[in-house]
C-alpha cells in the first residue's frame, strides 16, 4: 500500500507543499484546510496521487504532468491550465479558463465551469458534468471539450481543430464554429472518453461542433469588418 502524506495548510505554506510534491517520485498526498489558496499542487512532474480536501483558488493542478490531482471542492480561475498529461478532477464547480491551453491529459469538472473553459486548448480532453460559460473553446486548437449540460454564448469562437461535444443547449456558436455530423466512430470515441472521465451519459445524445475552416486563410471579404 502506498504511503499517504498529509499536508495541513494551517501548518504548512503552499510553497512547502509544492516543494514536497516536486521532490516526490511517487506516493499519495492529502492536503487539508485548502482555504481557497492559489497554486495548489502546481507543476507536478511524477505519477503522484494528490487529493485537495476543500476549495482551491487559482491555477489548482496547473501545468500538471503525470500526476492525478483530485479537488474535493470548487476551484478558481485557470484550474489545470497548461496541463501536459495526467488527470485533474474537480468535484465541485470551476471558475473561468478551466484547462486553458492544456496540451494533454484529462481534466474533469463534475460540476459546472464558467467562462472560457478550454480556451486555447492544445490537445487536452476536458469533460464538464454541468454547464460551461461564454467563450468556451475559444481558439481551441486540439483536443476535446465535452459538456454534459449547456454551453454559453460564442462557443468555439475561432476554433482550430479541437472537437466540442455538447449534450444540452448552446446559446450561440462563435465565429467559424459549426455543427458537425456525429458518426459512429465519434460516438464510440466519446463513449470511451466519458467512461474514462467517470461520467454517465449516452454519447449518442451529444452534438458535435468544430471548425468551419473559413478563417484559416486570408480572405479579402473579411478585411475591414468590425
Amino acid at each position: 500500500m502506498t504511503q499517504n502524506t498529509e499536508f495541513d495548510l494551517t501548518k504548512h505554506t503552499v510553497r512547502e507543499l509544492n516543494a514536497a510534491l516536486h521532490a516526490a517520485e511517487e506516493g499519495s498526498f492529502t492536503v487539508l484546510n485548502t482555504g481557497g489558496a492559489h497554486a495548489l499542487a502546481c507543476g507536478l512532474n511524477a505519477p503522484l496521487e494528490v487529493t485537495l480536501k476543500g476549495h482551491a483558488g487559482y491555477y489548482a493542478g496547473g501545468m500538471n504532468k503525470e500526476a492525478s490531482v483530485v479537488v474535493e471542492g470548487n476551484v478558481g480561475t485557470g484550474c489545470a491550465e497548461n496541463i501536459m498529461s495526467g488527470v485533474v478532477r474537480v468535484m465541485g464547480d470551476a471558475s473561468q479558463s478551466l484547462g486553458a491551453s492544456g496540451h494533454g491529459g484529462l481534466v474533469v469538472c463534475e460540476g459546472s465551469a464558467s467562462a472560457r473553459a478550454g480556451i486555447s486548448m492544445k490537445g487536452v480532453d476536458i469533460v464538464v458534468g454541468g454547464d460551461v460559460g461564454h467563450m468556451s473553446g475559444f481558439m481551441a486548437q486540439a483536443g476535446r471539450l465535452v459538456v454534459l449540460g449547456d454551453a454559453g454564448a460564442d462557443l468555439g469562437d475561432s476554433i482550430y481543430e479541437a472537437e466540442i461535444f455538447v449534450r444540452g443547449d448552446v446559446v450561440s456558436l462563435g465565429a467559424d464554429c459549426e455543427q458537425k455530423p456525429m458518426d459512429p466512430a465519434h460516438v464510440d470515441a466519446l463513449g470511451a472518453l466519458l467512461r474514462q472521465a467517470g461520467l454517465d451519459a449516452d454519447p449518442a445524445s451529444f452534438t458535435r461542433y468544430g471548425s468551419a475552416r473559413t478563417l484559416y486563410n486570408f480572405h479579402i471579404d473579411n478585411a475591414g469588418e468590425g
Binding site: 482555504g35 492559489h38 478558481g76 480561475t77 471558475s95 467562462a115
Partner: peptide
C-alpha cells in the same frame, strides 16, 4: 464579458461576496 472575478456564498446567517473564495473561507 466578466473578466473580473467574483464569488458569492450564502447561508441562513449571511450572504458574502468577494473577488476570491479565500476571503469567504474564513
Amino acid at each position: 464579458i466578466a473578466c473580473k472575478p467574483a464569488v458569492i456564498a450564502e447561508t441562513d446567517e449571511w450572504v458574502a461576496m468577494s473577488s476570491e473564495f479565500r476571503a469567504i473561507d474564513k
